[in-house]
């Protein structure tokens, strides 16, 4: 077993394969792996950021919800207040109206009574006069006494 040309052939082969590996095999694979590592790192960072954003959004949502709820509360309270106010006013208006109606009725009644009384007095006076005239017709001259009766009737009013 001697050293021969095989030795040099293999040195050439070795150099060739090393050169091929160094030029065409190693760098692309290394680049692909590094790039993938970077992608994964980016993805993880993005996921973390998204989780944080979600947390923030959730907090904000809770805040907005609280605000909305309290606002609704105020609106409802205002509405209640206004409703009772309206009710109160309506009640008062109704009571006033009723009172006015009643008063009006009283006045009407009073007037009617007054009229009735006047009519009655006139009628009574007329009847009395008639009766008196019939009684007196036989004894007294109606022309002389009518003036006297009219003045009396006028006083009755």
């Amino acid at each position: 077993m001697n050293l021969d040309l095989t030795f040099f052939a293999e040195i050439v082969a070795f150099a060739l394969f090393v050169w091929l590996t160094m030029r065409y095999l190693w760098p692309p694979l290394m680049r692909a792996m590094d790039e993938r590592a970077r992608k994964i790192a980016d993805g993880l960072a993005a996921a973390e950021r998204a989780v944080r954003d979600l947390e923030l959004a959730r907090e904000r949502a809770v805040g907005i919800l609280h605000e909305a709820r309290s606002e609704a509360q105020t609106i409802v309270e205002g509405a209640h207040l206004r409703a009772s106010e309206l009710l109160e006013r309506a009640e008062k208006t109704a009571i006033d109206q009723a009172a006015r109606e009643v008063e009006h009725g009283h006045e009407e009644l009073e007037r009617a009574r007054e009229q009735a009384r006047t009519a009655l007095q006139k009628e009574v006076a007329a009847l009395a006069l008639e009766a008196a005239r019939q009684i007196i017709a036989q004894e007294i001259d109606p022309a002389r006494h009518a003036e006297l009766l009219a003045s009396v009737a006028l006083r009755l009013q």
Partner: peptide, 13 residues
């Protein structure tokens, strides 16, 4: 080298 270079050429990240 042959397989390796083909693989490296098509390598994807």
């Amino acid at each position: 080298c042959g397989i390796g270079i083909v693989v490296a050429r098509r390598a994807t990240s």
